[in-house]
Amino acid sequence: MALLTLMAAVTIGVVRLRNLFAVVILGSIYSFLMASVLIVLDAVDVAMTEASVGAGISTVLMLGTLYLTKTEEAAPKHSPVLPLFVAVVTASVLIYGTLDLPRFGEPNTAVHQNVAPRYLSKSIEETTVPNVVTSVLASYRGFDTLGETTVIFTAGIGVLLLLKGRRKKAENKTGDNA
């Protein structure tokens, strides 16, 4: 509960602050709090990912972007009423949706009925890997993980194409002007 309150406080800070440097650091703090929440929920693997990607790499990339741009957010040109309305409606729809979800940790839900018990009971026997998260990720759901790796590959190639291609064009332009 304390963690969630802190997260809410950080979110309000992110919305209210105009200094983007502070916003990036607050975003990193938010990720760390999220990682702590995930540890409380016993999802250590996810917490590790959140701490390293959310708080680490993306903060560095954001700071790298800030170095290229201004660190002060421009004052908004439009009135905040319409975005606020959209946000409130979306949030209420989402909260309404959670009412239908099973209670947290409920053993009789569909997720805990089909393949999960088999993974949990057979993982060591079939793969000799004690960490079920690893055996599900890499073996039982190997196809998904291959797709995931391909997505990361595609993302890397996409960023490379965007950033490198533009730089080459810019060089050509300056060459023409000179």
């Binding site: 590790m48 990912t49 004690p130 960490n131 998260v133």
Partner: peptide, 16 residues
């Protein structure tokens, strides 16, 4: 294989 983590997390840490 034994504790939390795996290729993804390790890759991110190495990149860090």
């Amino acid at each position: 294989d034994f504790g939390p983590g795996g290729g993804f997390q390790a890759g991110v840490i190495a990149a860090a």
